[in-house]
């Protein structure tokens, strides 16, 4: 296949993936403890769509079913899709910026900073809501941004930032944040469960409000990252080289890392720390569609969303009535699959 035809081919596959994601989304609404038939789900959804709502009758569906779908399952699915797409895209972008396949959204200390922020809010018993978000979520967002700000300033010399120092500073601050969280938990054993549940990450309290707060951070962030897709390809082959190929390296790094930080902070603040998606999904897709960010980033967005949606649906229904933390599911199901792909990839090289 010619150079351009190949990319066109990938874009048509992408379109199919989006359709699959939408079908998965609708399917996830039908799965759950409360038994709501698939056709009823479709009718409830259709009854909310402007234009065709008059054609659909929901007379013989219980009102509680409609509430479960519209107020719980649908916002949850949307939230999961947004967070999954955000984390996976950030992972893909960061791997290029750091030229390191181990890079992931938490690498700048964002997750631990969010954790610390949430912990502090939980311990001092803030129970106000900010913009419809819990105090813990707002405090988590501030914690994440504060952490990345510190890490960034440690790594900055003049107007340049060194990726190696960024990773090291991020790791060091992450350890410190985690240590502080543990200390706080020791002194406030009564709040330990809350803190642990928060840090494990979950979508168990979805709301349209959360989505409304997340979107203004997520969409512009993703747009900036996508805007720099080709520059990211070039930077991933070396910063000095990128300069000689006409890329404004420092400016690109700043824009992309700032966007990554904001997207991650918003995702973590609304849903807690969900590991693995940002590391594994970009990798997995690299093996499937190649490493060109112009293709990889959109696929990561769709793939991250689909993966997290499947994991979250499993988390909801695997052991009713309890809910398994979605972070545990992503790791338990993702790791073996990923290891299998690694082994297969290794064989094909040998």
């Amino acid at each position: 296949m010619s150079y351009l035809a190949k990319r066109k081919f990938y874009y048509s596959i992408l379109l199919i993936s989006v359709i699959v994601l939408l079908l998965l989304g609708i399917f996830s609404l039908f799965v759950g403890t409360a038994n709501i038939g698939f056709l009823d789900v479709c009718r409830i959804l259709a009854s909310k769509l402007p234009g065709i709502q008059k054609l659909v009758s929901t007379d013989n569906i219980r009102g509680s079913s409609a509430d479960i779908i519209i107020k719980l399952r649908l916002p949850r699915a949307v939230l999961v899709i947004l967070v999954g797409s955000g984390l996976a895209a950030v992972g893909a972008a960061m791997q290029s910026v750091f030229r390191n396949p181990m890079a992931e959204p938490g690498i700048l200390g964002l997750s631990s900073g969010a954790g610390l922020g949430a912990t502090i809010a939980i311990v001092i018993g803030l129970d106000k809501t900010v913009l419809g978000l819990s105090a813990a979520a707002a405090s988590a967002f501030i914690g994440a941004i504060a952490t990345v700000f510190i890490v960034y300033n440690i790594s900055r010399t003049g107007h340049r930032i060194s990726p190696t120092v960024l990773i090291l500073a991020g790791t060091a601050i992450s350890f410190m944040n985690s240590a502080v969280i543990q200390l706080i938990m020791i002194f406030r054993r009564d709040r330990m469960d809350y803190i642990i549940m928060w840090t494990m990450g979950s979508f168990s309290s979805p709301s349209w409000n959360k989505i409304a707060v997340l979107l203004p951070f997520l969409l512009p962030g993703l747009a900036v990252i996508l805007f720099h897709a080709r520059d990211l390809n070039i930077i991933s082959t070396g910063e000095e080289t990128a300069k000689t190929l006409g890329v404004e390296v420092e400016r690109t790094k700043k824009f992309v890392l700032a966007s990554c930080s904001i997207v991650t902070a918003a995702c973590v603040a609304t849903s807690g720390i969900i590991g693995f998606v940002g590391l594994i999904i970009p990798h997995l897709l690299r093996l499937l569609v190649g490493t060109d960010q112009r293709v990889l980033l959109p696929f990561s967005i769709v793939g991250g969303a689909a993966f997290l949606l499947v994991c979250d649906t499993l988390a909801r229904v695997a052991a009713p009535p309890a809910e398994i933390p979605v972070g545990a599911i992503t790791a338990v199901f993702g790791s073996p699959f990923f290891i299998a792909l690694l082994i297969k990839g290794k064989r094909s090289v040998m």
């Binding site: 082959t237 070396g238 000689t244 190929l245 490493t291």
Partner: peptide
Amino acid sequence: LAREISVVPQNTYIEFDFSVQDIVMMGRAP
């Protein structure tokens, strides 16, 4: 500058799995 001067650096190590054509095409970036 990239349209006037091209550079072949001392060591090239590329972490990711680009094709030869992908890399050469990066020369067209400017």
